[in-house]
Design a protein around this nucleic acid. Sequence first.
DNA 1: TTGAAAGCGGTACCAA
DNA 2: TTGGTACCGCTTTCAA
Lengths: 356, 356
Amino acid sequence: MEDGSAAPPQQHEGAAAAQRQATLHDVARTAGVSQATASRVLNGSIRNVRQENVAQVLAAAAELDYTPHLSAQAIARGTTNTAALVVSGVDDPYFSTVAGGATQAAEAAGLIVTMAVADRSPERELQIVRTLRGMRPRAIILTGSRIDGTDTRAALIEELDAYRRAGGSVVLISQYDLPFCTVSIDNYGGARQLARELVGLGYRRFAVVRASAALRTSRDRCEGFVDGLREFGIGVEARLVVEAEFSRRGGLAAGRELVRQGLGDTELVIAANDVMAIGVMTAFRDAGLVPGRDIAVAGFGDIGPAVDVVPALTSVAVPLRQVGLCAMELALSNDDVSRVVPISTNVVLRDSTPRR
Amino acid sequence: MEDGSAAPPQQHEGAAAAQRQATLHDVARTAGVSQATASRVLNGSIRNVRQENVAQVLAAAAELDYTPHLSAQAIARGTTNTAALVVSGVDDPYFSTVAGGATQAAEAAGLIVTMAVADRSPERELQIVRTLRGMRPRAIILTGSRIDGTDTRAALIEELDAYRRAGGSVVLISQYDLPFCTVSIDNYGGARQLARELVGLGYRRFAVVRASAALRTSRDRCEGFVDGLREFGIGVEARLVVEAEFSRRGGLAAGRELVRQGLGDTELVIAANDVMAIGVMTAFRDAGLVPGRDIAVAGFGDIGPAVDVVPALTSVAVPLRQVGLCAMELALSNDDVSRVVPISTNVVLRDSTPRR
DNA sequence: TTGAAAGCGGTACCAA
DNA sequence: TTGGTACCGCTTTCAA
């Protein structure tokens, strides 16, 4: 058909012909200046460039829809504008509130946040940290309960430590048993205080809904609560301690389990977190028990929805958003000291635990 | 241990002596192979490398705690492993659920998610897209209601379009009025159907709590609802249409406002989303009204907490998590067609709207 | 004030 | 199977 001319492959014009992003080089050429000058204009030092060229470069950049390639900048500058956040799950209001705070602080510092979800799997968490490290973020923030007894623990510490040695900063939220900067929520103390106040309201017979003992957060809260009761010589029957998933679903299941096996003369059920407590209340209601009247319920965390349920849930307030903010700020203010910032908690009594 | 090469400058051990990350070059040198070979081993083509060298490189990488520099890879490969997600707010269960789905899909595809919060500000949203574009993500997903009548609209379209021209894929969630791939939630139809079913339950006199008319999502829902009522010849008094923030707080305020001005013989209050509805219920309760008995309430979205409030909230279910999943999958499957994926909604009647 | 050029950490083609 | 080498897009001396 064709004569032997080596026709260049025609582009499919009009189709989604990915027409590569404009580069700094393109801008410079269009503006008729050197790449160095273009770089100067499009970034910090506008001062050392002639007015005329500034305008020229800006115009070219606008015309070509230029966006600096952050990866290229990162590699050239040796530093990124990224902060990484690892959460256990986004759906949980606990984490999403913390994430909100952290994100706000990061954006205030001009950083982009990359977020990953570990789904309470230590293996996944380790893998995530490994990947995230590749982005060379300025900080890595880990939130969610440390899970004890897993052999990934050492690997995680090693990974985080290597990251820190390379200049990154690590901040943990609520996991004060690892050798890193930690925003430490006083789960134990809060739960203990909660126990005291509930006893003060007249409660004597308790049931406990908790997550796996491997979950540090849950364990601390339970221990605090039990120790608080012990101050008054009150114990909790083993059969009234139910273990379930650390989620609303888990609370629901635990509530049903309690109903099934019979609550006896139990007066109050304490759950290891608010979503569990809410699940418990729903289970009770389904069984014809009216929470707050027939049986009291309390949680931990004081997430937003705690006040929307009926009766409003007694809980231990944790300044979640501030925790996130604080963690990010701590991470960004690189004082090398690996300190622990204690966050105190605060019992909030509501209608789910009326005075008896 | 090491060969006695010229003694490297002693590090301040113990102090935060940022000792730069190991590079591929370091690994190659330690393993005694070329950088090219090290690259081959540490990435795809292990096959074309001698067993012995593979081991050597792997060992060196482990010893040096090597992590590939993602930015460098991105720049060399010309493509990243990143997907970007823009939400209106993380604290809202609506968005965090969508974000959960999107994150899951992204991670399943081996991508890292970077998330930014626009806080319902169109200016902020535009700025975010501009920044995010610099990361050269494979996809940008925008979720949250489009806000009409802002002059940033054109700029946003231009920005997204430039991104797409450069090969990126854009997916919008619930904003079907922009010329991009959209996962379109049937807000209008769902609300209309809700109206029909509520009329079917015997309700005739309604109040509406809505967000600003500029918020597309809120507007569509209200229009659907009003049109649904009109089918039965039912109207809504203008004074019973209250506008407030698109949040729980807004709902609370609106509820108080309704109580203040008097509900008259209103039988049911419909809110533009669930968190508003929940706020409204709380306001009513505070005023001594029992939701579900004295006055019915319905929302939209069917977020998780909708079933935890008392009475459980009648709502229109949107498969939020799936919406997020779907959006990300759509974005990643780069068929160039800019299509609209309709997501149907589903009325869920609960105790907050008992049959009259 | 400007531009040339040497990296930054990798990838991938090409010849050996 | 290997190593040499030319980039990738940008920053930043260094001289002019």
